[in-house]
Simulated assay, not measured.
Amino acid sequence: MNKLFTRIGLALVLLFSTLSFAADNATHEQPVGNDALWAQLQDGATGYTTSHSEFHNMPINSYDLRVLELRSDWLAPGLMAALFGMIVIFALFIMVNGISKLHHGFSGKMVQRWSKFDISIHWLGAIPCLTLILTGLTLLAGRFFLQPYVSEGFWASFVYLAKQIHNVMAFPFMIGWLLMTCLWAKNQLPKMYDLKWFLVVGGYINFGPFKGKHPDSGFANAGEKMWFWTFALFGLVISASGLLLIFPNVFEPSRTLSLISLILHAVSAIIICAFSIVHIFMATVMSEGGMECMVSGYCDENWATQHHNLWYDEIKANGTLKYRD
């Protein structure tokens, strides 16, 4: 009888050991949870949605992750460099070169340069543009300069808020971009004298052979024209790609087109960001008396003759020169 119980005991021990070993192997060999889901997606698993898109049953795009890696590894740091790098470069330049002062000081006579409508259009595009740069920087590269220093709860809420603001501010930006592009293009056409403007760096250099050089310029100088056409072109790209990303259910782009839109959106943002920093510095800190133009619409007469002499001569000759009362 004792031998029987002994044999039964050994059999039970062997049985449970075998089951435990099999369970361990299954645990190690079969992915569970997120790992199992990811394995299924990589194997081409499909699902069901109410969408009628050609890609309605494809949960993710697993065939070309290089696009996402390009966006996260190169374009995100690129946007940071465009913003912070250009600020540092201009700050150092002003420390070395100084600003462009009016040679004859302020005359006290204010010449109309922009209408109130033009000023409204400018700020309609400018304020959303700055907001989009800051929120876009948070969404694209915030994990580098903000996420490591805040709690996960704060980071999640901050990113969510940035995303909502980014989507909303896109529409006034696009309206401002469209109005500026259509209404201001006639004054932004290139002229032969623009080449000389570039050769002497617009007369903003205060040392060496460039010092005191002030090339001819019409209503817009060559630098402003380059900024305008850059803004017009990449503003179109960033607006079109942004609409595809905001309304995927309306346009139903392919997964490939969606990824291309992400890249074009980020590249355009980097270029517009870099030029925006240059534009802001040139209009505020760099050019004495320049900011007044987009605050009141008027500029000092000495500023007009120094920086836009051909335009000033033209309005003086044709009788459209108007002073502020």
Score class of each variant (00 low, 15 high):
5 F>N: 11
6 T>M: 10
7 R>W: 14
11 A>V: 14
12 L>Q: 06
13 V>S: 06
14 L>S: 06
14 L>K: 01
15 L>N: 03
15 L>C: 05
16 F>Y: 12
16 F>Q: 03
17 S>W: 08
18 T>W: 11
19 L>R: 01
22 A>G: 10
22 A>C: 12
23 A>W: 07
23 A>S: 10
23 A>L: 13
24 D>Q: 12
24 D>I: 07
25 N>D: 01
26 A>E: 09
26 A>W: 10
26 A>K: 11
26 A>N: 09
27 T>Q: 13
28 H>K: 13
28 H>N: 10
28 H>S: 07
28 H>Y: 11
29 E>V: 08
30 Q>P: 00
30 Q>F: 14
31 P>D: 07
31 P>G: 00
31 P>R: 03
32 V>H: 08
33 G>A: 06
35 D>V: 00
37 L>I: 15
37 L>Q: 05
39 A>H: 12
39 A>S: 12
41 L>S: 02
41 L>T: 01
43 D>Q: 10
43 D>T: 02
44 G>F: 07
44 G>E: 03
45 A>C: 04
46 T>Q: 12
47 G>Y: 10
48 Y>L: 04
48 Y>H: 04
50 T>A: 00
51 S>E: 06
51 S>N: 02
53 S>Q: 03
53 S>N: 07
53 S>C: 01
54 E>M: 11
54 E>K: 12
54 E>L: 13
55 F>Q: 04
55 F>W: 13
56 H>W: 11
56 H>E: 08
57 N>F: 08
59 P>W: 01
59 P>S: 02
59 P>L: 00
60 I>Q: 08
61 N>R: 09
61 N>Q: 11
62 S>E: 05
63 Y>C: 00
63 Y>N: 05
63 Y>Q: 03
64 D>W: 13
64 D>R: 03
64 D>P: 09
65 L>W: 14
65 L>E: 14
66 R>Q: 07
67 V>L: 15
68 L>Y: 14
68 L>H: 09
69 E>W: 13
69 E>C: 00
69 E>P: 00
70 L>N: 07
70 L>P: 09
71 R>Q: 08
71 R>N: 10
71 R>A: 04
74 W>T: 04
76 A>H: 09
77 P>T: 03
77 P>F: 12
77 P>M: 06
78 G>I: 02
78 G>M: 03
78 G>A: 00
78 G>W: 02
79 L>R: 03
79 L>K: 06
82 A>I: 02
84 F>V: 05
85 G>M: 07
85 G>I: 08
86 M>D: 01
87 I>W: 14
87 I>S: 04
88 V>D: 07
89 I>A: 15
89 I>R: 08
90 F>M: 12
91 A>G: 15
92 L>A: 05
92 L>D: 02
95 M>C: 12
96 V>M: 15
97 N>I: 07
97 N>M: 05
97 N>C: 03
99 I>M: 06
99 I>R: 12
99 I>E: 01
102 L>P: 02
104 H>G: 02
104 H>L: 07
105 G>R: 10
106 F>A: 11
106 F>S: 05
107 S>H: 08
108 G>K: 06
109 K>G: 00
109 K>Q: 13
111 V>K: 01
111 V>H: 06
111 V>T: 02
113 R>V: 02
114 W>A: 07
115 S>C: 04
116 K>F: 12
